[in-house]
Design a protein around this nucleic acid. Structure first.
Length: 686
RNA sequence: UGUGAGGUAGAGCAGUGGUAGCUCGUCGGGCUCAUAACCCGAAGGUCAGAGGUUCGAAUCCUCUCCUCGCUACCA
């Protein structure tokens, strides 16, 4: 740590088109805040930067749909998001927004510098355009029928049903999601950043220089670099965003992923005139806290931008977390499967520390993790209440009972090895916590904090002052020593848990009547935090048990809020009937009834089943794309209709001798077309 | 399709070649200052599966299975 004289900590800018949920907290805001509070307690020079990301197409679209301006949307969500985060004690030094003037200027200047240095490629391409809504459409905003699986709700970049990567050109009957118009191709010019030019730099800086990064982050970056980078457009056609600062750039804005990370710089500028100390001096440690969805932008693209522009420090680490699930299911804002932060602070006022604790304890640090209300209750009741709060409470009660509510003296003459052990255990825990925090292992650090409370309970149990008190006069010295140490340990707990649960630490300070300055990290491990003879306040509970009904209420609320997916997307009308054919055309088809006698999945193909079909005279091997609708076991013995004279075709190396007829509904569900009753295999269909 | 991360006791995790560990939960005991809280103890695991290297494998190699992500114009 000696290498660095100041810290610049950023947390991903939440996108201002909706509120934040606990997945956001667990993924980046909470770990960032814990890290920052720890650094502040160490009296480090640190700035904690955040803000809302307010540009981009989704905001524009949301505004169009709601009939308001994009500014209305971002104003609304900036307010909700910043209040939610501040309610949870996320202690940004500044929480800015990318629609601010200072950011527009900073981002535009950044772009201009790169442009002037000749670092962009100018390319003209054809993009899809919605002539009704008068906007260019990202692939995502075009829907149509998937050519592979027939899903009528496939997006222009991917079909979510069969997982195929698509381009809008592949879609059958593409439509704009905005206006339903048929997209047309239109020429447009953009500025591309040739990321491939930065490969040598990235390989050396990241792959060679930062092997200590988390597995998930490092692996992801290595995967990108190994497969080779390519040019990426840094501008978009849109009215909502930062205008491209060039003369011939009407209707062009910066790509949100170009402007958003520059938001960290703009916000620092807004915060302090000394912003350059944090961004441009080599002895600054820059750390980006993000969720795993942001890895490439923060580890590949933004560092390349910083390098290209020149004069900026590069991130020292990017400790991205994985995703948090809720009650076993992915968080989904569109289905409203989420625990919203603004709901939590309303339903559990003054109990932010419980959620901070639970989210840190179950944070998805190495893999996706699950949040459940049952777990929330259990951790509160058995860890925070039973171990932590209870230790502090019983200490306070005993001090009031046997020591008149004042810090008892410590008598050196009756000190024993158990007392010494307590101190050495405490120092060891402190070291473990520091080590874990400095290496972004927040779960581990927090577990060790609880362990300190556990040490207290073991100590208290072993000394049993309530037993000593049966002969209080002769044992007073022993009682004093025990409770003196328990009080010092309580004060230590306040320091050690402060980064995680600042509200709780404050409560302890209040009870012990000490000033907040005691919470400075260098005081941890000291046994001189409260002074002999000093009176304490009345005991108070730091945490109380949460009853089943309160948890039940939350679970019900979660399920009640769940929005059922709209059945089969915007159910398109049945496909129009094709043009007439003559009987002879039809007669060319040889359709037979067959019985499936064997079925197995085709390896390395999600959708294919290999079938053996008995058509009386022979048995045919047929590969059919029905694996998503039928399992092999359930179809053996079923009768089907087979196109028997279809030219054989190899699929996945298997010769498919025919095709099974399927009926498909508007939602894309496939069912067999088969005889009404069992019919002899080989029967002709006409 | 390729690729990244992950798969260890009922749950959540640690463990990179040498007797499988921690927390919660469960069960038994102790204590009574404390919020049915605390303390002590026990049960519970063919370390996803198969094969290989090794005196020895959760750990190294190969293959397979499962979960989640990425695959470049969603942010």
């Amino acid at each position: 740590m000696a290498k660095f004289n100041r810290y610049l900590i950023t947390a991903a800018l939440p996108y201002a088109n909706g509120p934040v949920h606990i997945g956001h907290l667990a993924g980046c805001y909470l770990p960032a805040d814990i890290y920052v509070r720890y650094l502040r307690a160490k009296k480090a020079d640190v700035k904690f930067i955040g803000g809302t990301d307010e540009h981009g197409v989704p905001i524009l679209i949301k505004a169009l749909k709601e009939g308001v301006t994009p500014q209305d949307i971002v104003d609304k969500y900036h307010k909700i998001i910043s209040e939610s985060l501040s309610d949870m004690g996320i202690s940004f030094d500044i929480f800015s927004r990318t629609t601010k003037q200072i950011h527009h200027e900073t981002a535009a200047a950044f772009f201009k510098k790169m442009y002037d240095d000749g670092l962009f490629e100018e390319k003209e391409t054809e993009q899809f355009y919605d002539e009704v809504a008068k906007v260019f459409l990202a692939d995502r905003y075009i829907v149509g029928t998937c050519p592979k699986c027939g899903n009528p709700g496939a997006y222009g970049d991917q079909c979510e049903r069969c997982g195929t990567s698509l381009s809008p050109d592949d879609l059958i009957s593409p439509r704009s999601t905005l206006s339903d118009a048929v997209p047309v191709k239109k020429k447009t010019k953009h500025w591309y950043m040739p990321l491939q030019n930065y490969e040598p730099f990235l390989k050396e800086w990241l792959l060679e220089g930062h092997k200590e990064w988390k597995n998930n982050v490092y692996g992801q970056c290595k995967s990108w670099l190994d497969s080779g980078l390519q040019s990426r457009a840094m501008t978009r056609d849109s009215e909502w965003g930062i205008k491209v600062p060039l003369p011939d750039a009407e209707g062009k804005v910066l790509y949100v992923w170009f402007d958003a990370p520059i938001g960290y710089i703009s916000a620092t500028k807004e915060l302090t005139p000394h912003w350059e100390d944090y961004w441009c001096k080599e002895d600054t440690k820059l750390v980006h806290f993000i969720g795993k969805d942001n890895i490439v932008f923060h580890c590949i693209i933004f560092p390349s931008m910083l390098k290209a522009h020149g004069g900026f420090v590069l991130p020292e680490n990017v400790p991205a977390n994985e995703f948090l699930n809720i009650e076993g299911d992915k968080i989904s804002t569109s289905r409203n499967w989420a625990v919203w932060v603004h709901d939590y602070v309303k339903d559990f006022p003054g109990q932010e520390d419980i959620m901070r604790y639970v989210l840190c304890a179950t944070a998805p640090e190495t893999k996706d993790n699950d949040f459940s209300w049952k777990d929330f209750q259990q951790r509160n009741n058995s860890e925070l209440t039973a171990i932590y709060s209870n230790f502090v409470y019983r200490t306070m009660v005993l001090v009031h009972k046997y020591c008149n509510g004042k810090v008892p003296p410590f008598h050196m003459d009756v000190k024993d090895e158990v007392d010494d052990k307590l101190l050495s255990d405490l120092l060891e825990s402190k070291k473990k916590i520091e080590d874990a925090l400095e290496n972004y292992r927040f779960r581990e650090a927090l577990a060790e904090v609880i362990n300190v409370a556990r040490l207290g309970n073991v100590f208290l149990q072993g000394k049993a002052p309530w037993t000593l008190a049966k002969m209080q006069e002769e044992n007073q010295k022993l009682i004093d020593n025990c409770l003196h140490l328990c009080l010092q340990l309580t004060a230590n707990l306040a320091i050690l848990s402060n980064p995680f649960m600042p509200g709780t630490s404050k409560k302890i300070c209040h009870m012990l009547k000490v000033v907040d300055r005691m919470l400075e990290w260098e005081n941890a491990g000291s046994l001189k935090l409260v002074n002999t003879g000093y009176p304490m306040r009345e005991p108070q509970y730091l945490f109380t048990n949460i009853e089943d009904d309160k948890i039940q209420e939350q679970v019900e609320k979660l399920h009640a809020g769940l929005v059922k997916p709209v059945e089969a997307a915007p159910a398109p009308e049945a496909a129009p009937v094709k043009e007439d054919i003559q009987y002879d055309d039809f007669a060319k088809l040889d359709l037979r009834v067959g019985t499936i006698i064997e079925a197995e999945k085709v390896k390395k193909a999600d959708k294919l089943l290999k079938l053996l079909v008995d058509i009386g005279t022979e048995k045919r091997t047929v590969v059919s794309g029905i694996a998503l609708h039928y399992s092999p076991e359930e179809i053996i013995g079923k009768q089907v209709t087979l196109v028997a004279n279809l030219a054989p075709r190899k699929m996945k190396g298997i010769d498919s001798q025919g095709m099974i007829l399927m009926a498909e509904d508007a939602g894309g569900k496939l069912v067999f077309v088969n005889p009404d009753v069992q019919t002899a295999p080989g029967s002709e269909v006409r």
